[in-house]
Design a binder for these strands. Structure first.
Lengths: 318, 318
DNA sequence: CACTGCCTGAAAATACCTTTCACAAGGTGA
DNA sequence: TCACCTTGTGAAAGGTATTTTCAGGCAGTG
């Protein structure tokens, strides 16, 4: 057929463990998450369609392309385009997924109160809402995470001679978190927050090494530049991006998309994006630990013991 | 055909109690029963089709009439006839019902993976398990969080002249996260990772200031010492601790307890404790932002704008 | 102000579903 | 046994839904 979008400049470079499958038989449950994640990269017309299907899967599953186009005030072409963007081969399949989703919702039907946090909310409500939103974010992220890309990323990391991780601000903390954990199991990993140093280090990378950029917006210059440098040097590059089509994906061999719910005034997008990023990063870590288990397990134990004397005895009860 | 009601807004909340359906499409769940009931009145070819759809709804929902005809060794006409007999207007609708049924079945029998993550788990399972565990951790944390202590902590923070935050390793990242966010809304906050510097700074604190220690074990010397110093200087001290009775609580005016699920070999306790800590920290932040809204809101907007030029234009659509 | 790139919907092209129709198999009555 | 009818069946025609193509229009850029 044809490539509707191919983010990577050299899509076909041999990445260790890269799957050849275009695939992803789209999971019905992931639809709402996918809509939220992809909404920013949609055009206005497509957003209308996406909102319609996400808002009323049951109703929309009855509609033909033409009917849905009329209902959303767009054209059949736009409906099909939206279906494609959501990961389905065409509208027909989206419609099937819609029916499935509707059935799921009818069965389970957990109301899931997701009201925005208001300025005058009592603290008890804030706690509840925040926890629910984070849980939602986790579920969304897990649902839409591309396992094939994840697998490829894990394999690349596990085999890497050296791993550089780029992240700024909130994403910088996630980068550090990953670096810390990888170091614990004996990998050579470093998190760079300083863009200049990051680039300086990036040019040291060579094929077999891995560079990983973490960015919520998908367009943060300061992490794109080092990733690009690493890309040019032939290292395997991975992007953990909040947007599947952000500029950062141009220089990424592998892209892991995080999902973020809409932000409200008091709750910046960075919060849910951080949750989402951390989940992805944890998955990467566990995957790597699994694949290097022989080395990882003793390394983990050793690091625990090394820290023991830093804690008071009382903390060791139970 | 005719759409009398506006689909846009009302769709957003699928009310379970409202039937409203004209009941044209038979309930998906009844399909298997209907097949058994009607089987005797079916011709042999039609029985083959009926068996196929009843036996593998998920698989059959992917097939076109033609494909299903081939699979059952019959013709398109027979497939359509069977669909009609089962009560659907045509094959198209049977197919939708099949998808719905498949989804129901899948939902009904979710293994509910709560097992530990094993070394040989496929990555898909890792993602699911990890997400579920984190969700559980969030729910637990929210449930046991002491709102009164939280409220007191928020008030202390909102009124503080200066805020020092101590955390080491994984907790250090949480400390940084909180500091970053508080800085964004104009508070004077600093996260200390270096124990010596932390103590050095702690002695500068005075009543009205706030010192906050984050520790999973509740007994980490390196964060207890600076907290103690701050305590001795008369500052308000807060502990975010994984144990309600850890040594750190001796020097804490307010204690916020985090919850952490059991750790497994591959999943260090630090992971869930981090999730829990972040939730607490987010609650603190939102609480403070609420109470200093007049100052916080403009400060947040300002920080967004200041960063705008650091991102590529594509990320700014919508 | 021209230009470029992208969104968009109308219409053509295609795929899919439905209907028609003729044939074949099995039964029934002479 | 044959002639005739009934009924099941699939091939192909017919119609509808979906997909693709294409050109006009609009916003942003130099």
């Amino acid at each position: 057929m044809k490539e509707t979008f191919s983010p990577s400049v050299r899509a076909l470079r041999g990445v260790p463990g890269a799957p050849a499958l275009p695939v992803a038989p789209p999971d019905p449950g992931a639809l709402a998450a996918k809509v939220r994640t992809l909404a920013p990269s949609m055009t206005r017309s497509m957003q209308r369609v996406a909102e319609a299907v996400a808002g009323d899967p049951a109703g929309c599953s009855h509609l033909t392309v033409t009917a849905l186009a009329v209902r959303t005030g767009t054209s059949e072409a736009t409906v099909v385009r939206t279906a494609r963007l959501l990961g389905y081969p065409g509208y027909r399949d989206l419609r099937l997924a819609l029916a499935a989703l509707a059935a799921q919702q009818a069965t389970g039907a957990p109301p899931a109160v997701t009201a925005d946090i208001a300025v005058d909310d009592p603290l008890g409500d804030v706690v509840t809402k925040l926890a629910l939103e984070e849980q939602q974010t986790l579920a969304d992220t897990a649902a839409q995470l591309d396992t094939a890309q994840l697998e490829a990323a894990v394999n690349a990391l596990a085999a890497a001679r050296r791993i550089d991780i780029y992240g700024i601000a909130a994403s910088g903390l996630v980068a550090q978190d990953l670096a810390q954990k990888l170091l614990r199991i004996g990998m050579i990993a470093h998190a760079h927050a300083d863009p200049h140093l990051a680039v300086t280090n990036a040019v040291q990378l060579r094929p077999g090494d891995v560079a990983l950029a973490i960015t919520h917006s998908g367009g943060t210059h300061d992490v794109i530049e080092p990733l690009r440098a690493a890309f040019d040097r032939g290292a395997t590059t991975i992007a953990i991006s909040g947007r599947a089509d952000g500029p950062v994906t141009q220089y990424a061999d592998l892209v892991l998309t995080t999902s973020s719910s809409r932000e409200s005034e008091l709750r910046p997008a960075a919060m849910s994006s951080r949750t989402s990023q951390l989940l992805v990063v944890d998955c990467l870590f566990i995957g790597v630990a699994q694949r290097t288990y022989e080395d990882a397990a003793p390394a983990l134990s050793a690091s625990y013991e090394a820290l023991a004397h830093r804690h008071s005895p009382r903390a060791h009860r139970a």
